[in-house]
Amino acid sequence: MNDKFIPLPKEFYQNPTLDLAKELLGCLIVKETNEGITSGIIIETEAYLGAVDQAAHSYQNRRTKRTEIMFHEPGHIYTYQMHTHCLVNVVSGPVGTPEAILIRAVEPNSGINLMLNRRPVTNFKNLTSGPGKLTKALNITMDDYGKTFYNSSLFIAKGKKPISIEQGKRIGIDNAGEAKDYPYRFWVTGNPFVSR
C-alpha cells in the first residue's frame, strides 16, 4: 500500500446513497498495478437507488450474475461492461438493498503519463471526462468486480472537499420512465473534467 494514499475505512460507505454520492466528490480513486499507481479526484457521480429506481440494474430487486454484488455490503466494487467500456460503481445500500453510485468522471491526479499511455488523447480534458474513459486511464477492469474499495488495489482515499457542487438529472437513461428525471447526478461546479 502506498503511504501517500490511505484507503477510507469501511464505515465511510455506510452513509445513505444520495449522501455518499456527494461525499465521494473530492475523494481520490486510486489504482495500483505492476506498471505503477494512478489516481484521480472524483468530480462527478450518479446515484442509483436499486429496487425503486427504474434506471438501476437492480430495479425491482433484479438479482442476476451481474447485479449480485449490489446486494452485498456497502463499499464493494461493482464493475460492468457497457459496449466496449468497463464502468465502475460503489455499492452503497445496506446488505440486501441493491444501490450503487457510478463514478462518472475524475480529474487526473497522479500517474498521468501512465494514464496517457493507456489512453492517448490530443485534448487533455478528454482523458478522464467520462465513466469509460476514466476506467481505461486508471486500468479499472472486470477483474475488480466484487472486491472492496477499502481493501484492494483499487481504493478510495481522502481528498479535499469541493467548494461548490451541483445536482441534476443523470445522463443516458432515456428509457427509464420517470426515473430519467431524478436529480441523482452530482458534480463539482466548474470542473473541466465533468462529462458534460
Rank of each mutant, 00 (worst) to 15 (best):
D3G: 07
I6W: 00
L8D: 07
E11C: 11
F12M: 11
N15A: 15
T17K: 10
D19L: 10
D19Q: 14
L20S: 11
L25C: 08
C27H: 13
C27K: 15
V30S: 02
T33I: 07
T33V: 05
N34L: 04
T38A: 11
I41T: 14
T45H: 12
V52S: 12
A55K: 01
A56R: 01
S58V: 10
R63I: 06
R63N: 15
T64S: 14
R66Y: 03
E68W: 03
M70T: 05
P74W: 05
G75C: 13
H76C: 14
I77D: 02
T79F: 03
Q81V: 09
T84N: 08
V90Q: 07
V90R: 08
V91W: 03
P94L: 14
V95P: 02
G96Y: 03
G96S: 10
G96T: 00
E99K: 10
E99M: 13
A100H: 04
A100C: 15
E107A: 15
P108L: 15
P108W: 11
S110N: 08
L116H: 00
N117D: 15
R118S: 12
P120Q: 11
V121C: 10
T122C: 04
N123K: 14
F124K: 00
F124M: 14
T128I: 12
S129I: 03
S129H: 11
S129Y: 01
K133R: 14
L134R: 09
T135G: 03
A137S: 14
A137Q: 04
A137V: 07
L138Q: 06
I140E: 02
D143K: 14
K147D: 05
T148K: 09
S153W: 01
A157R: 05
K160W: 01
I163A: 14
I165S: 07
I171F: 11
G172L: 09
I173C: 04
D174N: 13
N175Y: 08
K180P: 00
P183C: 11
R185V: 01
R185C: 07
R185T: 03
F186I: 05
T189Y: 08
G190T: 00
N191I: 02
F193E: 02
V194G: 08
